[in-house]
Simulated assay, not measured.
Amino acid sequence: MKNIITILALSILLYSCSSKKDGNMIVQGQIKGLKKGKLYLQKMKDTVLVSVDSISLLGDNTFRLTDQVDSPVLYYLTFDGNTTDKRILFFGEQGTITINDNVAQFGFNPEINGSKNQKILEQYNMMSRKFQNQRLEFIKKDFDAKREKNQDLITQLEKDYQRLVKRRVLYTTNFALNHADSEVAPYIGLTEMYDASLQMLDTVNKSLTPKIKDSEYGKRFQEYLNNIKANENK
């Protein structure tokens, strides 16, 4: 009798595991060097980061996670639930997305394939990092100039920095306009165009295709603009 109960329990367990339904997005890959740990597939829901799938890895560094994607959005692949210094941020969408990385530098330079939006976002991030590095250089030069009380250099650095800000805004706006048929455009509008004028934001919003306007980020971008306009009219 005990053996029969054990067999039945195992059968139920195996059935429940095999009957798990996949969503329309599969995230798979390999984390080299990972001996033991747990990977979480997470995304923002309202303002809360929620886990949509997870897998425990014990001696096997390959993984497979899934979710049902209604509209392409940013996802987090986190190691042991650590969302600060060990995470991979990527654009999730329908289909199979392959992510390969290593445990020693998890999240630093992962290889991500299978997401059209991710490739577009990577193009933007490459240039954005250059602007960020230039900004850090300005901060250092400004610190040194103020320490030396070199007012002429301080004034010149301020002018040069404002030109850098303007170049960044123009680049970001043009990038969004050139990718108006991608969910990356409203995402950039929401997260990267904080220095842009309302006119620039409006121009990007009007350029979005109907499909993108109806996406999650498209709707949030429209709501964001509505709030700005409402506050200006107060």
Rank of each mutant, 00 (worst) to 15 (best):
Y76E: 11
G114Q: 08
Y75L: 14
I55W: 00
T96M: 10
G114I: 02
S51L: 07
A104I: 10
T62Y: 02
G59H: 04
S54I: 10
V48H: 12
L121S: 12
V52I: 13
D67Q: 09
D101T: 04
Q118H: 11
G59A: 09
I120R: 03
D60L: 11
N117R: 06
D70I: 13
D85N: 15
I99Q: 01
Q118S: 04
E111C: 01
Y75D: 04
D60M: 10
I99S: 00
Y75N: 04
D70M: 11
A104K: 14
T83V: 15
S71V: 06
N102Q: 11
Q94E: 15
T84I: 13
P110Q: 07
R64P: 00
N117S: 13
N109P: 01
D46C: 06
T62P: 01
N102I: 03
R64G: 08
T78G: 06
P110M: 02
L89Y: 02
P110E: 05
T83W: 00
D70H: 12
F63T: 01
I112M: 06
G107T: 05
D80C: 02
L74G: 07
N117K: 06
N61C: 12
L74C: 07
R87W: 00
T83Q: 11
T98I: 15
S115F: 00
I120D: 05
A104V: 11
R87H: 08
K86L: 10
T98R: 12
G81S: 09
Y76D: 10
G59P: 11
V52G: 06
K116S: 08
Y76R: 13
V103M: 02
I99C: 00
G114Y: 00
S56R: 09
L121V: 08
K86P: 08
I88M: 03
S71K: 09
N102Y: 07
R64D: 03
G59Y: 07
Q94L: 05
S71F: 09
T84W: 08
L77S: 03
V103P: 00
I112R: 00
L74N: 11
T98N: 03
Q118G: 04
F91M: 15
S54F: 12
I112Y: 02
L58G: 08
S51H: 05
F108R: 09
L58V: 14
F90M: 13
V69K: 08
G59K: 03
Q118M: 04
G92R: 09
I97L: 05
P72V: 08
T83R: 09
F63A: 09
T98M: 10
N82R: 15
I120H: 03
L57N: 01
I112P: 00
N82C: 10
F108M: 09
L121G: 05
V48W: 05
K116D: 06
E111I: 13
D85C: 04
